[in-house]
Design a protein around this nucleic acid. Structure first.
Ligand SMILES: [Mn+2]
Ligand SMILES: [Mn+2]
Ligand SMILES: [Mn+2]
Ligand SMILES: [Mn+2]
Lengths: 223, 223
DNA sequence: AGTTCCATTTTGAGAAATCAAAATATAGGG
DNA sequence: CCCTATATTTTGATTTCTCAAAATGGAACT
């Protein structure tokens, strides 16, 4: 039985929640899963019970759910497809990194292995997508990077944007306009917890201030 | 309401059946539609009654069904996507014309307008796909070509393969091996109705014999 | 007109995915 | 230990799509 798009979406959401939880054995609460997938809580419960029966997840009533080995492998392939497609759309098709997510969200469920490996080859086997998200390898491994964000990195130090943890097109366009897309260099000048803000000095000596919520979504590495 | 993949498949099958019938007002029998879509006859009846209610087809019980103006426009867009995708997979992705149909069959339901128009531009607005099938324009027009086949064309005359009316990968690979893919030149040497066969002289002076059923699926134009 | 054949429609049922709202469990605070 | 807030599960229903098999319509042939 090959998984439906719906099943693939549940597995992918679970995979991403588990990566965020950082703990391999941790359970993802049903409410969080439901809102990640965009369904009512009861819908998620029903679906997860079915996935547990087919061995893709381990379900502990009232506690939460985690991927099985089989489920993890499947989810990694969905994520691999999603991110390779995004990279393809930007690099080969010339689309903007701010708008490829929605297309990839659909295409990830229908591209054949043949086609996805063709894309991978054309792109030279990239390790990250246009948002800096790591691309799982064909055997499902994914580099478990440990990032700083503009909220946690040292002040007055040259850093480089390497990843953006939000797919919202409006937010991505904002970052692009402010010279904050992956690859660009900058320094954090100051943080003001009362004002809930972070002051930056971007490439080209432009000084800007953004909120801490936004700052936490811009992941960086020290140069 | 945007149409589901299922609805798109029914409309596309109907469109292609009507093009084959050559008559704009003709009705496609339910049995033929059902087998084109690959469902049981009763399933097609149920679906068509729903499509009639939403105005996409005109249904005459016991006689058959035809596309409405709205249905025709929608079907033409599905076919446009299918054929542009096939051309893209061959020209840009370097895949074989013998294997792109299955991928296109899935992708045609999920590619965005943005993406399909990007493909169209990259390909230089092609008028036919890798099998010689005409690509409807963005406003739904499709050149209504009148073809000869290897079964109906004059003998001892230089002709050129322009279109293949079958998507079966095995058949397409056969044509490729025999130098009978679109663009290649040849002559029909003789036809033998008793033997149910057609004798050809292909490019490079190779002499081969094929059955009439196969010959009728190779469409040509006189050079 | 009667019979037979084939295509089509109807019927009854089921799988997959969903929701709203009611019921229940768990965890914390008093 | 009770009560309450919150998360989760259960229930009952709906939508979309499908099938097998029974019923029916239409055409054609004696
Ligand atoms: Mn994405
Ligand atoms: Mn991404
Ligand atoms: Mn095709
Ligand atoms: Mn084609």
């Amino acid at each position: 039985m090959l998984p439906s798009s719906t099943v693939e979406n549940y597995l992918k959401a679970l995979y991403q929640a588990q990566v965020a939880l950082e703990n391999d054995k941790a359970l993802v609460p049903m409410g969080q899963l439901a809102s990640a997938v965009g369904v009512a809580p009861g819908t998620a419960t029903t679906m997860i019970k079915a996935l547990a029966k087919s061995g893709l997840v381990e379900y502990e009533p009232y506690l939460g759910v985690r991927l099985s080995t089989a489920g993890t492998a499947l989810a990694a392939m969905v994520l691999r497809r999603h991110r390779l497609i995004e990279q393809f759309l930007v690099e080969i098709m010339g689309m903007s990194w701010t708008e490829v997510h929605e297309d990839a969200e659909k295409l990830e469920h229908v591209v054949s292995d043949r086609l996805i490996e063709r894309m991978d080859a054309m792109l030279g086997h990239p390790s990250v997508d246009p948002h800096g998200d790591p691309i799982p390898t064909p055997d499902g491994d994914m580099a478990p990077h440990r990032y700083h964000s503009l909220l946690t990195c040292p002040l007055h130090t040259q850093v480089k944007v390497t990843r953006v943890a939000d797919q919202d097109a409006t937010f991505l366009r904002f970052l692009e306009a402010q010279r904050l897309k992956p690859g660009q260099a900058l320094e954090v000048e100051a943080r003001d917890s009362a004002a809930d803000s972070v002051q930056l000095l971007t490439e080209g000596q432009r000084r800007i201030t953004i909120g801490t919520k936004a700052a936490s979504k811009v992941l960086i590495e020290v140069a």
